[in-house]
Design a protein around this nucleic acid. Structure first.
Lengths: 338, 338
DNA sequence: AACAATGTTGACAACGTTGTCAAGCTTTGG
DNA sequence: CCAAAGCTTGACAACGTTGTCAACATTGTT
């Protein structure tokens, strides 16, 4: 089965290959009737442009890279899915590149993919989007890149994020509106800049309501289920036990909830629990966890849109390429009146 | 920063581009001293072959496709990771292609990626690896493909799988060795061929031990956490409640365990629970779930190896390209003596 | 009606690599 | 020592597309 090339289409349509090229790429300067004729032939022959020839000639690869430190996480899966669908929409393809900053030689790996695949752009997720060395490799290679939820997007990088502070504040205000006054908080790891912003939002809400934050009820976790279990114990042993626990992510919220259940403390009747992230297991648990949904897939899709935008390639510092997306609070069974 | 091409290397090393090409591709017929000289220049100039030019010329893409129905699942993540690392090892790249059999037009999607990207091979995961129409598209396009855990691998497809039957039997025998005699079983959905094999293994073990399987204690779930919750209720309401529950996957095992906990039934003291898959949350739960680890990443890596093997491209029906990998039983806290 | 501006088209040469093939070397065997 | 066989090397032409540019056709302006 010989493959159909642009020449076959051109011959059959009675035009030059260049004209066919113009039609395929939606360029101007083609008479409507010719355009239609060509499109008809394309459909008839079931022609598909060879991506490699196209890339070689145009020096655009139609390939975007997704740089990710832990490709097995649920977070990675969501981001990847969002990016994938949007790439498909834009006739791009996505190549996933794991980057292990802990392993020597990762720099060469990254440079290799950039120069051999000639990526048209890169999407970089936390926490590696905050690594200066990685970003400078992109700069050197002249590869446009968009960071997802970075702590401080440098000049020249696009960025997409959500307002962690506002989201956390919203959640805290919701707990307050339910009548909770003793609210414990489980922090995320210090390296994770978003979790600091979440704590800010939490504190702002309490402060605005005229409440003091009891620092014995603010504990640092590491995002793991296990740390939620353990810190839950500590919180429930407090002299004045909290009536609500706000954890910086769902895994820790889940852990705290299991601890409560082990002790026979009913959720949400005797204790409200809420998390952050809306991971799959927060829906699988019982009761389901009240949480904040991060628009992970949407952020990835937005990143793709920015990268394929021709304007971005000229002027990557333009403020239009700093985009904040809306989160959503999802009230489920794990929270109730105090 | 002009990009370095093969000509630059050739000029600097005082040889022809073709010779450089030979060195890069590890071909024969190059004198050792010249080979070394070229390699030195490659390193000096930091030269990387342009993947597109290479593909265009050689009509090999150095690209493998991973065809997957639900790219957001934890399963997908594991498979993808395994494939990714192995691709990197073999200097291939991986393109992930979601296939939604429920959506019309998916055929065109698939044909599109095949003919436009000229994939060198495809890895197909369950359940879509059992779809005849999909496989025939690969055949038409002449794209070699390897199926992961198919129900019946057709001629001409490579296949990698594990022995679900033996694994389930092993698990059942372990429960028997703990003294359990009333063992309930939660089946997976009928469409999932592996879960039927698991049930076979379960029944074989009981039969071999001279025990009857009580069919009231064999219930069909749908792999969801929710169905584990519900079927757990049913099983624990049985006149003679089981002392162990063997679920066809971890999510359902988790559900059953939560049900038991809600009723104040201690796991594993009063009830043993085990699952299948070793998903992340089976480790996160408390107690952790005894389960069977599927070598998902390893199967994917093996699939990559098969696809890049030049022999496979000639004779895809060769029995060497049917590969069974070993599973592992992982005993954790959710099982104990009857 | 003449001329300029604008729109449409195709010839041709890239893009960077590898396949083919033939030429010039070596080695081997008698 | 010579012929045959094998090894090493490079010239050249693909691979399938798009960028450039010049030619030609049409439209608009005066």
């Amino acid at each position: 089965m010989k493959t159909v090339t642009i020449k076959d289409v051109a011959a059959r349509a009675g035009v030059s290959p260049k004209t066919v090229s113009r039609v395929i790429n939606g360029e101007d300067h083609v008479r409507p009737e010719i355009r239609e004729a060509v499109q008809r032939v394309v459909a008839e022959l079931n022609y598909r442009p060879n991506a490699f020839a196209r890339s070689l000639s145009s020096s655009r690869s139609y390939l975007l890279g997704l740089f990710i430190d832990d490709p097995v996480s649920g977070y990675a899966a969501e981001v990847q899915h969002g990016a994938l669908l949007q790439c498909r929409e834009r006739s791009y393809h996505l190549v996933v590149e794991p980057v292990d900053l802990g392993r020597s030689g990762w720099q060469e790996q990254v440079r290799g993919s950039l120069s051999s695949l000639r990526l048209d752009g890169a999407i970089v997720v936390p926490p590696i989007c905050d690594d200066g060395e990685l970003l400078s490799i992109f700069d050197e290679a002249g590869v446009p890149h968009v960071l997802i939820a970075p702590s401080h997007p440098p000049e020249g990088s696009g960025a997409v994020w959500m307002d962690d502070r506002a989201a956390a504040r919203e959640m805290a205000e919701y707990l307050l509106s339910l009548g909770h006054r003793r609210i414990a908080f489980i922090q995320g790891p210090e390296s994770h800049s978003a979790s600091a912003r979440r704590e800010e939002g939490f504190r702002a809400a309490l402060h605005h309501a005229g409440l003091e934050v009891d620092d014995r009820a603010v504990l640092r976790g590491d995002f793991s289920f296990r740390s939620g279990l353990e810190l839950g114990e500590v919180l429930l042993d407090l002299p004045e036990a909290p009536s609500a626990i706000f954890a910086c992510n769902d895994d820790m919220a889940l852990g705290a909830m299991i601890t409560a259940m082990k002790r026979g403390i009913a959720v949400p009747d005797a204790l409200s629990i809420c998390g952050f992230d809306d991971v799959a297991s927060s829906r699988a648990a019982w009761p389901q966890i009240t949480t904040i949904r991060q628009p992970n897939a949407e952020m990835a899709a937005a990143a793709v849109d920015i990268l394929v935008d021709p304007v971005f390639r000229k002027d990557s510092a333009h403020p239009a390429f700093r985009l904040m997306l809306a989160h959503a609070m999802i009230v489920r069974g794990s929270t109730g009146p105090a």
